[in-house]
Design a protein around this nucleic acid. Structure first.
Lengths: 226, 226
DNA sequence: GGCGGAGGATTGTCTGACAACCCGTGACAG
DNA sequence: CTGTCACGGGTTGTCAGACAATCCTCCGCC
């Protein structure tokens, strides 16, 4: 009935339209076009994304899934907004969770997990200074994801989407929070060094610097609880 | 930091139908009527639950949200299934996460968090031996949720649904895994005692007994057969 | 000025349909 | 006999339009 579509369908699971919607909205949040607290009204949004309302709602449900959006019955979807205490909680909780990953990496005798970690570093290193700020953001996020993935702890992997979403929102909270890419690069480098050196106290200290201090900085920027 | 404008479950006067679907399916998983790996076909399921396919799909998406189900494009929804390594990861990860909560509880000078914890214990104590096994399960789960909630750490609260779902699946993995309610009751009691005594090493040991040992036990049960 | 109710706007749900896709089956060539 | 490929049934993904339930705003009334 047709010429053979010789091209191997590039994506093994092609064309769920809602995926496009999901990435589109996620990008809008990362880029600050959608800010925490913004309400999403379905009909105009569906029209602007050229999908039906049902498909849009499926995509929105997926975003609620990792906490990027919140849904209140009969009141609709809106971008998650974090209180200052929530921001501190995120930072304070991420440090011990990262330490769980680090422990798993260091307790692996084969060295494979360290290899995974260094690979994550390499990929970050290549994209950390990309001109596209979206790529920079993804590189940063992927590095932290790589740290958890290198632990080969499936529980952490399941918890990652929620964690990533919270961190994304935290950064999006302050639009002006364009953290200096060189600074993130340096922190990540120092962290890798400490892990390779297997210096647990140093690892913890550097995680603390990277995460908690950054959060406190965000909070001071935010200032008057606006 | 005194009066938190409490957010009472602001019921929207009527329950969205998908909530009923969600609890129905969740109950089926808890009760072992749906077992890990089972596939859910939409049309018969929607008919049996007396909702439209669209509403059913919204409910299924919500369940994917906390990890109780997995969705593969064009292959449908199925109950999450965990490998033995995943089961170990869950147990091994929950202990340090519970410790995060415990630290937050103990670092609260006002004693309010301890009060919340004891309240959670009371509610567990009242339902631990309920004749309905579903109530028993909920009492157990609510106790652990109460531990995290008592920490007043909003990040942990966000991570809870995923954690709960993983633990639920882990227990559902082996249908024969009705844990002796008296045993759970004793463990929880011992844990509370250790926390009140502020004995950190003892707390950790008892968490380990309750979580990791239970997981290993599940694995030996499962390993013999299968 | 405060209160209560009408009206519009928005979300929740339904029905029915069609397109896209997966999988098992069986014909066919080697 | 074996591997490949087309075919068809079954299932999921998406659409359109419609109606009910709920929220929100504003206006008249006391």
């Amino acid at each position: 009935m047709s010429a053979q579509p010789d091209l191997p369908t590039r994506t093994p699971t092609t064309t769920p339209a809602r995926e496009a919607v999901v990435t589109s909205i996620r990008r809008a949040i990362v880029m600050g076009e959608l800010r925490p607290g913004d309400k999403l009204t379905e009909v105009p949004l569906a029209a602007s994304l050229d999908v039906s309302r049902a498909t849009l709602r499926e995509a929105l449900n997926l975003l609620v899934q990792d906490g990027l959006l919140v849904q209140e019955p009969y009141r609709g979807f809106s971008v998650t907004s974090l209180s200052p205490e929530a921001l501190r909680d995120i930072a304070a909780t991420r440090v011990p969770m990262d330490l769980i990953a680090v422990h798993a990496i260091l307790s692996d005798g084969s060295g494979r997990r360290i290899g995974l970690l260094l690979e994550a570093w390499d990929q970050f290193d290549r994209r950390a200074f990309d001109p596209d700020p979206l790529v920079q953001h993804e590189a940063h996020v992927d590095f932290h994801h790589g740290l958890w993935a290198a632990s080969e702890n499936s529980m952490l992997l399941r918890l990652w989407p929620v964690t990533e979403a919270m961190s994304t929102i935290a950064l999006a909270q302050d639009q002006a929070a364009h953290h200096d890419p060189a600074r993130a690069h340096r922190f990540h480098r120092l962290l890798i060094d400490a892990i390779v050196a297997r210096d647990l106290p140093l690892i913890e200290q550097r995680l603390h610097e990277h995460i908690v201090d950054a959060a406190e900085e965000l909070l001071t920027l935010e200032g008057g609880t606006a």
